[in-house]
């Protein structure tokens, strides 16, 4: 089993674990984390798939998936930030509504 295959399989395991927890958990923060783990599994799989050997046995890495993953990481970070901000805002609004209900 080659190293790239091992990393690819680890990526698949991360993806499946993340998917399971994203579907089963009901807390938003955990769901955001689970989706991040899913995304990291996909990135790992892509990078592992990019690592290939050509006929002569020399490493011949495909730069296109690397560029895709780099783009993906930035988009994932910003999407996570947006999701966190939305969760913060939802908590604030829920707290305000509770205060109004009490008062």
């Amino acid at each position: 089993m080659s190293t790239a295959l091992l990393f690819g399989l680890c990526g698949i395991v991360l993806f499946v674990l993340g998917l399971y927890f994203a579907l089963t958990t009901t807390e938003m923060l955990r769901r955001i984390l689970a989706i991040n783990i899913m995304g990291n599994g996909v990135f790992m799989l892509l990078i592992a798939a990019a690592y290939q050997h050509d006929v002569s046995g020399l490493p011949n890495t495909d730069p296109v998936p690397h560029a895709l993953v780099l783009t993906g990481i930035v988009v994932a970070v910003s999407a996570t930030a947006l999701a966190l901000k939305l969760v913060c805002r939802a908590h604030e609004l829920a707290a305000e509504q509770r205060e109004e209900g009490d008062g």
Binding site: G8, I12, V16, L45, Q52, N60
Partner: peptide
């Protein structure tokens, strides 16, 4: 099951080489 299907896909892809390098 999804994990196994993906692993099988990765395994069979590792034989064929499709690269834009």
């Amino acid at each position: 099951a999804i994990g196994l299907v993906l692993a099988w896909a990765l395994w069979s892809h590792s034989e064929t080489s499709s690269s834009l390098a």
